[in-house]
Design a protein around this nucleic acid. Structure first.
Lengths: 328, 328
DNA sequence: CGAATTCATGAAATCGTTTTCATAAATCGA
DNA sequence: TCGATTTATGAAAACGATTTCATGAATTCG
């Protein structure tokens, strides 16, 4: 593999002159430019990435943390982020935390060792206090998650409102016995905020609540199936269920129908995200503008990298929208 | 940010000695090791990734090409590949080709400029003749796709068999008017092979075929919806449809039912992959062992990187399995 | 006991690119 | 005509880590 030294030798010039041609710096005659280009082509030369990174102190690589890429919400986020990154000449390293604090900490080393120029967190496992010190190594953008005090760019949705409008819809439909099904609302701010919104709507309507109408740790289709099994064992099951994911909702709908229940007559179910699955299963759902989230996050990331200024808190709050179908 | 020079200075030793401690080379006294470790901790030192890459001529990064990460088949592949890569200390760069030859060629530059140690192609857009020259820059593993002559490791499934067993199942069920719906079987070897298998089963059963029972360029749920619209306009529509994706099949099932058709009575539909969606929509499907494909591909990739030998053709052929549900 | 080998530590070179500083020629404007 | 500025090109240093080669002390073995 040819180096810039080889190109210089073949062109009969110095490495400095070759570098000037490659990087389009001034003060090189047209004749010399021609010689360099010809030599590069003849030797099939391209600059070595590692040497460039070392000299330029740049990697043109961004790490994106997701819990799991198979979750359609995150794969959709990543799809747009990779595309936006590519437009600006950046590569995207995929980091799956699998909801594990240690795994997230391991990946933070990428920033510390300067293997990436910045990172985007689409979910947060550790306390912010443990992540914040890494800001001294490079910029961090928080996306889809929320932290109260972090001095970083944050793209998020008002999940309290999301919980509220979904629940309000159920109440407006006449349901009075409402269940709440979500991820872990002790560790996840998203799940917590949705629950806050849910409770707000329930209290406004003067409805009663039962502890047994709360279902936790539901993330997948299978979790939806399992949640239904738990629900149908109740003496007094809820009439309607707010869920934190279309996949969970879809699992619930499938299990309910398999058990002979009618949706929404016997159980109304609302999902979140508006994935293709929502249309297939006719789910009422709260839509998140995933493309806008992703694009905003990547733009803020690249802006942070290129500005080389100390990070500043900047919130981008995006709207949620209810899509009504037949599951409610 | 501290460098190895800073650590050496604080420890009162040379950079060579510090490097020996970091890399656990022999001939360093325990006392000197202690001094170095203490200095590293005090300065919060970690080695610089770019410098290491340049000196070691290694990036510990692998690029994985997928058409689109939102396709559940590819997101599942990538999930397992990222996990396996992480176990061996490698990072995974995500490259979405979007089915575009130029985009694929752009990404091939990652290997040429030594930004990655190797790459895994899970779909192939360009002719192999255009990809093959990049083997001189680093190893390439082909996964899920197939090329006849490539001297590289290939992990694939017998898609002819996949097309055959799915179609045979429909024939065994008594259907005589069979349709075929897939991706572009002119540019995609996967789609082409499945069609070969489909035709083999149809010919063995002595069935007649109609050109208008072939539907192309279907990849998504929406494409499934559209395909049904085309199908229902036919004077003599097929009784059963072989599709190349659970998502396409799900779209078809949804559209058929919305149009008042009964599945499988009025139209039997078979999908491919056995994604969670298949269970939700009760699809009969041909299951691909995605975890095994991904794990095999990543192990072959890392083995190729570390062996530093010229690539050799090595085929790993994995089995397909029919999962029967109510859509056929 | 002495030669050979192992142990311990450090200086310089190396990986490959880009920038800084140096030198000389050409050009411009007073 | 001359001083100041611009143009053109190259050598050396820089980025930061690791390896090679060097040197001297300690140990081993015949």
């Amino acid at each position: 593999m040819a180096t810039i030294q080889d190109v210089a030798k073949l062109a009969g010039l110095s490495r400095t002159t070759v570098s000037r041609v490659i990087n389009q710096h001034p003060y090189v005659t047209e004749e010399k430019k021609r010689l360099v280009s010809k030599a590069m082509e003849e030797l099939n030369y391209v600059p070595n990435s590692s040497a460039r990174r070392l000299r330029r102190q740049q990697t043109e690589t961004i790490a994106v943390y997701v819990p799991r890429i198979t979750n359609p919400f995150f794969s959709h986020l990543v799809e747009v982020m990779e595309k936006e990154a590519g437009k600006k000449g950046y590569q995207l390293i995929l980091c799956q935390t699998r909801y594990k604090k240690e795994q997230e900490r391991n990946f933070l080393e990428l920033l510390k060792t300067k293997q990436v120029d910045g990172l985007i967190l689409t979910s947060i496992e550790n306390d912010w206090g443990q992540i914040e010190p890494y800001l001294s190594y490079g910029p961090i953008v928080v996306c889809n998650e929320y932290t109260d005090t972090a001095e970083v760019p944050i793209v998020f949705l008002n999940q309290i409102e999301g919980g509220y409008i979904g629940t309000k819809h159920l109440i407006d439909k006449g349901y009075t016995k409402l269940g709440f099904c979500s991820g872990d609302h002790k560790s996840s701010r998203v799940a917590y905020d949705r629950k806050v919104g849910f409770l707000k709507a329930v209290e406004e309507a003067g409805l009663l609540m039962k502890d047994e109408w709360f279902f936790r740790n539901a993330y997948s289709v299978q979790d939806g199936l399992n949640t239904f099994k738990a629900l149908e064992k109740l003496d007094d099951p809820p009439q309607a269920l707010f869920t934190g994911s279309d996949e969970v909702a879809a699992g619930l709908v499938k299990a309910a129908k398999d058990a002979g229940w009618r949706v929404p007559e016997d159980l109304a179910i609302i999902g979140f995200d508006n994935q293709p699955l929502a249309e297939l299963m006719e789910l009422t759902t709260v839509e998140q503008p995933i493309e806008t989230i992703a694009r905003n996050a990547m733009e803020l990331m690249i802006e942070s990298i290129q500005s080389k200024r100390r990070p500043v808190r900047k919130e981008v709050i995006l709207p949620l929208r209810l899509i009504e179908r037949t599951s409610t």
